[in-house]
Amino acid sequence: MIIEILKLLIIPGIFFLFTLALFYQWLDRRFLARLQNRRGPMHTGSHGTLQPLADFIKLLAKEDIEPEAVDKPVFRGVPILLSTISITALFFIPIWGVKAFVHFEGDLIFMTFLMTLIAILAFLGGWSSTNRFSTIGGLRAAMQTLGYEVPLSLAFIGPAIVAKSLSISKIVEWQASTGIWAIILNPLGFGIAIIALLAELEKVPFDLPEAETELVAGWQTEFSGRKLALLRFAFDLELVLAAGLITSLFLGGPAGPFYNIPWVGVIWFFIKTTIVVLILSNLRGLFARFRIDQMVSGCWKYLVPLAIIQIIFLQLVLG
């Protein structure tokens, strides 16, 4: 029992995820800065590694302003729910071995449900703020979900078909035992998942819900202090979640040479997620922002047909 609780709190648990989230935020910022010929965070910690933590603490210490007109219960609930949901979702990702902390048959479906919930929370956050910009941002977040949700789910189905299971842990197990990574059979699905996850993470070119020059900070405009700190933290966790999902579903998770020895699996997982994070931040630097109509119609015009082609291809290959 004690060991279980310790596990939950420290090692595959909250503390570890917290560190990982802050580290990936740093990595993302530094890498994008280097691509843009800048330096990025420099001063806090060696090469700015502690900057995300410093930002987090600074936001926690700041004044928490609650406008009069906001819908208080929802407004207060959104940041907490958002970060808890992100952490919960992360427990389904196998990090330390081929088995995740929590796993059951069908948890992939549960995962897509959680991801939709995240988008709905963004909408609720914008709506409860009652600010004009927040409302538009929230609406855009909801609209965006309509665009990327379907291709994302279809892309996730690909590895499930290959491994003949709807459990993330089982999919990873299958990849580890056969040595075939699902990306080999799902190249299109991999690309689609990456693009859709960019939209899920609200990053350029799909940062419409928080488009700075159009909507101030979009649906997050009214959040400040502790709430904003939690929101940002939730975003960092989502980045880990996105990278972890891609790694588990397409790149074999912690599988790799000697993955059965303790710690080696984690190192494989770490290397693979780092690569995924770098791909994501590279894409961030590459595009201009789409307009909401262009984004939704683009998703339905290109991503959905491609995802369907991917599945048909899988059915043909696997017979």
């Binding site: 691509l35 700075e212 020059t213 630097g285 201009a288 922002r289």
Partner: peptide, 16 residues
């Protein structure tokens, strides 16, 4: 202009 359409990389390069 690049910044207004969310293309921050071009913004950084131009200003450099």
């Amino acid at each position: 202009a690049a910044h207004e359409i969310g293309f921050d990389t071009l913004f950084m390069y131009c200003w450099r």
